[in-house]
Design a binder for these strands. Structure first.
Lengths: 214, 214
DNA sequence: GTCTATACGGCGATAGAC
DNA sequence: GTCTATCGCCGTATAGAC
């Protein structure tokens, strides 16, 4: 047996710092600018070392996705727990939170033609959706109850999808009709879950808004 | 004055063929695989010639976007004209047509951090949306009439956005809740615009479904 | 106006030295 | 555990042939 390629340990502090740098680069300049050399330069190490921890560039991206999505899932579960009486509002606000939206878009684009990354995204997307559906079912049951005759799955799709769409369009510089769409949906929310608390509270300090390379 | 770089004419037949090859490559393997050398190989010419017509790679992508979106806009206008009594159904079916969806996703990802391409996408997106809004206003007026109390802009956003979302998720291999969402929305459509003709007719033969590089 | 040949530096990836 | 050398691709630029 020829020994396979050597790889740095997953618990290395260096490894975690490299992931931080990669994430920053990705937010600021897009995944195309996340290169071994660029990450290394930002972290103050050699490119070879980055490759030691992430033999393929995809390994880096996958590690990034996994780390991020675990944080996000934890946060979502905590929010749904804390406001179990108004899951719709929680999901809506959670989806509108822009902190991780820029990264998500980046990852989707990245996964579009890269099987290993696509699989990772599909995995976390499904996991999140299951949690969301459970929260809806716990509060409103599994049938299409009030909710404008919408079955829970369809409602969930709107609730989390519309903010995603808006971000996507904002990303290319389009904003037509966004305001109307948001207002319409929020007034529907108001009718189903009369606002007790206006916003899902922020769990922690987030990174400043991503600067785009315009 | 040093003469600027020379560029091939916009009416060249060769140029059009190069665009065809680039589009095929993009659908089959993603924009990352659209390279001067790859396009040239498919077209049976040298890489230098591709560069002669498209000095920067972005020039190629922009030309591709422009050509495609003009075709699509023409098609949309024709459909709306032919079925002026049921614009909702036309927009829904048009948005669900997958022929150009793979390309659209690709372009959005591409434009995410490339200003010139982003500008091009924003331009055509706005243009299309204006046409769509006009069609809605012509049939239903500009106020939020019936339509589930949704203002036209919000309705339009759902109508064209949901199919886009579904494609996006399909692209990464997620399909949970898609069926329910489509069914729910179509039954709403049925209630507003009782189906006379079930589908927006196809304008012409389309390319076979894109093979994904799984 | 069309097209070819050639060169440059940056990239992902690999094998292997320290 | 860390880093270097090397390979074959890439975008881009330029000079010049038909």
């Amino acid at each position: 047996m020829s020994s396979p390629r050597r790889v740095g340990s997953q618990t290395s502090r260096t490894r975690d710092q490299l992931l931080d740098c990669a994430e920053q680069l990705m937010i600021e300049k897009g995944y195309a600018h996340v290169t071994y050399r660029a990450v290394a330069a930002r972290a103050g190490v050699t490119a070879g070392l980055v490759q030691y921890y992430f033999p393929k560039l995809d390994d880096l991206f996958i590690a990034e996705i996994r780390r991020r999505s675990e944080q996000n899932l934890d946060r979502l579960v905590a929010l749904l727990d804390a406001h179990a009486d108004e899951p719709l509002r929680v999901l809506w606000e959670y989806s509108r939170d822009e902190a991780t939206a820029a990264l998500t878009t980046e990852f989707i684009a990245l996964g579009n033609h890269r099987p290993s990354i696509r699989a990772e995204i599909a995995d976390v997307t499904d996991k999140v959706r299951r949690v969301q559906l459970e929260a809806l079912a716990a509060r409103y049951g599994t049938t299409g109850i009030s909710l404008g005759a919408l079955p829970p799955a369809a409602l969930l799709f709107l609730l989390t999808g519309i903010p995603k769409l808006i971000r996507l369009e904002e990303g290319v510089g389009v904003s037509t009709t966004h305001g109307e769409a948001v207002r319409a949906f929020e007034s529907f929310l108001d009718s189903v879950e009369p606002a007790s608390r206006p916003k899902a509270k922020k769990p922690t300090k987030r990174a400043p808004a991503a600067k785009r390379s315009r």
